[in-house]
């Protein structure tokens, strides 16, 4: 089951690995220019006095960010984990996951598996293999980025703050993996799981617009907004996501055990 599932995912694994490598190379290559860009946005105090208040606030914030961007560690966390790599993680999880069950049903190959193995064995075999791939690539590119920065001569360390950020991303990507896996179990074709997955990815940030439900949007958690600004681990949110993930996976198993083919 493991090898077969890996073979099915091989092309997508290569594409995403190449994409992440290119993104990392681009980030490191453009590092000096980012510094320069922010420094050019700083203006003198005489010019500042003639500007309206709201613009002064923006520039003050920019100046603050510019100062922080001089720190390689901050640059790495904000630009790799919190932006480029971090932002692609839900999409990465979706593309790797949506076919796991839906393609077997869509193509009619599920009968081959159902005839040979009991349903829990099929579910766990495919689920764990897919998770191994998703979490494996996430871990690899979480750790490669600081190493690549170090090798490029930047002063980056594996600080506790960085580890906390990586742990939150792994919990976050596990949550998205379980959700998209459930879609793959629920639907009998490959279009619906990817379509619903994209709606979820695009729709979740809109929840932040409403104060009462903005906690439902896991992006600030996955992108480590609180970790970067305060250096603290969001324990309650982590626990909640892990519990929800476990419930979703259990639901997926129960649906798969009862589903008609």
């Amino acid at each position: 089951m493991f090898n077969k599932t890996i073979m099915e995912m091989k092309f997508r694994i290569i594409i995403f690995a190449l994409f992440f490598v290119l993104m990392l190379v681009f980030l490191i290559v453009t590092r000096p220019f980012i510094d320069e860009m922010f420094s050019q946005m700083n203006i003198g105090s005489e010019q500042m006095e003639n500007l309206p208040d709201f613009f002064k606030n923006i520039l003050a914030e920019t100046a603050q960010v510019s100062k922080m961007m001089e720190d390689d560690q901050y640059f790495l966390m904000s630009q790799w984990y919190s932006k480029n790599f971090g932002q692609f993680l839900p999409l990465f999880a979706l593309i790797m996951t949506f076919t796991i069950f839906a393609r077997e049903v869509d193509k009619g190959t599920i009968y081959f598996l159902l005839a040979k193995k009991n349903r829990p064995a099929i579910f766990w075999g495919k689920t764990l293999t897919g998770y191994f791939v998703v979490i494996g690539l996430t871990v690899i590119f979480s750790f490669i980025a600081p190493i690549a920065m170090m090798l490029s001569g930047y002063s980056v360390t594996f600080s506790p703050q960085l580890f906390v950020l990586i742990v939150q991303q792994l919990i976050g990507v596990t949550f998205f993996y379980s959700l998209f896996l459930l879609f793959s179990v629920l639907f009998n074709d490959q279009i619906k799981p990817i379509l619903v997955g994209i709606i979820v990815i695009v729709g979740l940030p809109f929840l932040s617009m409403f104060e009462s439900v903005k906690w439902l949007n896991p992006y600030p958690y996955i992108l480590g907004t609180q970790v970067i600004s305060n250096g603290t681990f969001d324990g309650i949110y982590s626990l909640a996501l892990m519990v929800i993930t476990a419930i979703i996976i259990w639901t997926g198993l129960e649906v798969f055990k009862r589903k008609e083919f």
Binding site: E8, K107, F112
Partner: peptide, 12 residues
């Protein structure tokens, strides 16, 4: 052992 009506196998 089972051979289904739809003989779809992994095409890759």
């Amino acid at each position: 052992a089972f051979v289904p009506e739809d003989k779809s196998f992994y095409e890759f």
